[in-house]
Design a protein around this nucleic acid. Structure first.
Lengths: 364, 364
DNA sequence: AAAATTTAGCAACAGCGTTGCGTAATAGGG
DNA sequence: CCCTATTACGCAACGCTGTTGCTAAATTTT
C-alpha cells in the first residue's frame, strides 16, 4: 500500500493530477483554462505547468490570438512521454496493450494461453509479449509499469490472486510480487471489471461522475467508479453483479442461489432469445441505478459486444422508462469506447494513474 | 458546495480530523496512540493537539505510568464542547435530537406533524422544538448547526427537496436556504438513509469500512458508506434499494416495475408471513454484498425494529451461507446501535462532520 | 546518585499555494 | 507614430503546513 501522509507532497500530487487531467481531456489548453477548471490561482498553475514542462509531460505548442492583450501560451500533453503496459488475463487468452500518457492504445496483441495455465506459464507469456511490444529502448525507458486485469477473486491491496474462477492453479498466488521480480517493472493487479471502468474514467477526465461498467464475457460482472475513484469493496470482491437474484423462483445458479442474473441471462441466450437476454441485463442495470444512482453506464465484454446494438437499445430503453417521471434523473448509456481492449487498456491506465493521478491519502 | 482547493488548509483540516477521529473512538488516548493511528510525526501530532486543546475540543486528563521514562499525557475528547441538532422528518412525525461532539444523543424528542404538512409547518415545528431542546445559552453558543434527514428525492448539493414521496407540498422547496434563514443556524439537508449510515460511520471511526444501512419504514431504503464517505450518487438519489427487482414475474409495484423488493416484502408482511418477509430482505442484502462487497450491514427503521431478531437472524444466516465457501469474505451484520434515533442523530453528526470531519476536496 | 529511557516542545527548515507587483506583448485610439 | 488599456505571466515575499534536529523534563533502573 502506497501510504501517503497528508503532507505538502500530497498537495503537489493532487494539484498536478488536476492539471494533467485537463491536459489529457483537452487537446490543447492554456493557463486560464486550467485556472477555471481547478480553482487554483494563476500563479499556482504557472508553477505546476513549469514542473510538468520540465518533466516533459507537457509542452508549449504555440500561442492564441484572441484580441487585445498578450497572447496566452497554448500547451498540450506529450503523449509519448510516458507509457504503460496493460494485460488482460482471461481464461484462455492474454491480451497485451501499450498505452501512452494520453490514454491512447498504441499497440495491441492477443495470444493464447494454455488450458489451465499455471503462474509460470503466465509470467513467461507476459515477459515474451512485453518484450516484443516494446520495440525501442526509448519506450522501455519511459515505461511506468505493467497493469494486470484479471478475473477474481483477488486481493488488490496485497496483489494476491485468491482463486480465479475456472483456473485450477491459482490459489493464493502473490502475482504482483512474483511478476515484479520476473519483469523487473512495477506491477498493478486488479479485477478485470475494475480495470475496465478505470479506462472509461481516465479517458473522460474530471467530468466523469459515478459510473458502472457492465461486462458480459463468460459471466456477468460490474466495475464501479464512485466518488471519483474505483470502488473495490471491503475484500476486492465488488462487482459480482451477475450473482444478484432477479428471479426468486428462478433456476439454480452455480453460486448456490436461485434466479441470479447470470443464470437467467444464460438460459435466455441458450434458448436463442437474445431480446429477453438483453432485457434481463437491462433489469439488472436499472437495479443498479436505483441502488447507486449512476451518471454513466458502460457496456462491455466479448459476449455483449457480439450484439452491441441489441443490448444498448434494451438497456437505454429500460433506463429511460424508469426515469421518465422526472427530468433531472439522467443516465448516459454507452458502449465501451475501447471495445475488446477495454480491460487491458484500463489496467495500463491504472499504472499511469498511480503515478500521475490523484494520490491516495492514508487508507487503513 | 463548500469548495476547498487543495491548499495547506486542507492539510490542517485533514490531519485534525484524523486526530479527532481517534479522540472520538477511544475514550482516552495519548500522543503515541495518535502517531501510530495516523502516521504523522510526533511533532505534528503535538501541534494538532495543541490547537485542539486551545479550541477546547480535547483536554488532558492525567498521565499514564507504564514503566521507565517520562509519563505520557493522556487526553480525552470534551463531549460538551460542541453540539448539533438533528432532525428526522418523516411523513407524520418530527424527531429531534441533540448530539454532542462525542456522538452521544444528549436529548431526544418526537412530535407529530400535521397531515400533508407544508414547509412553514415544518419550519415552525423545527423552531419550537429546537428552542425547547436548547435549555441553556451555553449549549446554543456551542451549536454548530442543524442537520435534516428526510425522505427523497432531494438534491443534496443545493439543499433542495425535489418532491418527498407522499407529501404534496414539497416540490422543489429550497429547504436548506429557508431553514437557515428561519433558524439562523447552518443547515445540512440529506436523505434519511444517508444520515443514518453517517451515524454508524461517525460512531465507529476510522475502522469503519464499506457499509450499508438497510432501513424498513414505510418503504425500503438503503444508505451507503463507501470509500470513507457517504455515497449519494449522481443526483442524490442513491438508496432506492427497495425498488430493485428480485422477482421478474412478481407483482406490479407503484414504481411501474414488477417484483421490486419492496412490493414482494409488503405482500409477505400483509400475508402475515414475517419469516418470508425477512428472507426477502436477506436476498436483497446478499445482492448488495455481491455488488458492492461490504464490510458492515446495519439494519434499521421502525418497521424492521418491530421484529429486530427475526430480520437480524434471516440476514445473518443468508450472508453467512453465501460466504461459507471462503474464510476471507467477512461481513458484520448488526442492528442500528441508535435505534429510533438513528436518522436524526446521523443528521446531526453530518453537521459535526462538516466542521470536524475530513474536509472535502474540490468536487465538480 | 548516576544512567537509561521515554515524552514533548522549541527552533530552524523545506515546500506548498497565495499575494503583491513588475514586465512583456498585443490591440486600439488619438 | 505614440500612448494607453488590456491580458499574460513570472519573480519575490509571505503565511502556513508538516518535518527534522535538538534540548529539557520526568520517570525507572542500576
Amino acid at each position: 500500500m502506497t501510504r501517503i501522509t497528508a503532507d505538502v507532497r500530497f498537495l503537489r500530487g493532487y494539484n498536478q493530477a488536476l492539471v494533467l487531467g485537463v491536459a489529457r481531456t483537452a487537446r490543447h489548453f492554456e493557463r486560464s483554462t486550467v485556472v477555471q477548471a481547478t480553482g487554483l490561482t494563476p500563479q499556482a498553475v504557472s508553477k505546476v505547468i513549469a514542473r510538468l514542462s520540465a518533466d516533459g509531460l507537457i509542452r508549449p505548442t504555440g500561442a492564441r490570438r484572441p484580441g487585445v492583450g498578450k497572447p496566452a501560451v497554448v500547451y498540450e500533453l506529450v503523449p509519448d512521454s510516458r507509457y504503460a503496459i496493460g494485460a488482460h488475463v482471461a481464461r484462455r487468452t492474454l491480451r497485451l496493450v501499450l498505452v501512452d500518457l494520453a490514454g491512447t492504445v498504441r499497440s495491441s496483441a492477443v495470444g493464447p494461453l494454455p488450458g489451465d495455465f499455471t503462474p509460470p506459464h503466465l509470467l513467461d507469456a507476459l515477459h515474451a509479449g512485453i518484450d516484443t511490444m516494446i520495440g525501442s529502448t526509448d519506450v522501455r525507458n519511459r515505461l511506468t509499469g505493467v497493469g494486470i486485469g484479471m478475473i477474481g477473486p483477488l486481493d488488490h491491496a496485497h496483489g494476491l490472486v485468491r482463486g480465479a474462477h475456472g483456473l485450477r492453479h491459482w490459489h493464493d498466488v502473490p502475482l504482483r510480487e512474483i511478476a515484479e521480480k520476473h519483469l523487473d517493472l512495477p506491477v498493478h493487479l486488479d479485477k478485470d471489471v475494475t480495470a475496465g471502468i478505470t479506462a472509461e474514467a481516465w479517458r473522460h477526465g474530471a467530468t466523469f461522475g459515478d459510473a458502472a461498467l457492465i461486462m458480459i464475457e463468460s459471466g456477468i460482472g460490474g466495475g464501479f467508479w464512485l466518488g471519483g475513484a474505483a470502488h473495490r469493496g471491503a475484500h476486492t470482491n465488488a462487482g459480482e453483479f451477475g450473482h444478484t437474484v432477479v428471479d426468486l423462483d428462478g433456476p439454480r445458479c452455480v453460486c448456490g442461489r436461485h434466479g441470479c442474473l447470470e443464470i437467467v441471462h444464460r438460459h435466455a441466450t441458450e434458448a436463442g432469445d437474445l431480446a429477453r437476454a438483453a432485457r434481463v441485463v437491462a433489469v439488472g442495470v436499472v437495479n443498479l441505478l436505483q441502488t447507486l444512482d449512476l451518471a454513466h453506464v458502460v457496456l462491455a465484454g466479448a459476449d455483449l459486444l457480439r450484439h452491441p446494438e441489441t443490448y444498448l437499445a434494451a438497456v437505454t430503453e429500460a433506463v429511460q422508462a424508469d426515469a421518465r417521471r422526472v427530468d433531472w434523473l439522467r443516465t448516459r448509456v454507452t458502449l465501451s469506447s475501447l471495445g475488446a481492449d477495454a480491460i487491458a487498456a484500463g489496467a495500463a491506465m491504472q499504472v499511469l494513474d498511480q503515478h500521475y493521478g490523484i494520490p491516495e491519502l492514508a487508507q487503513t
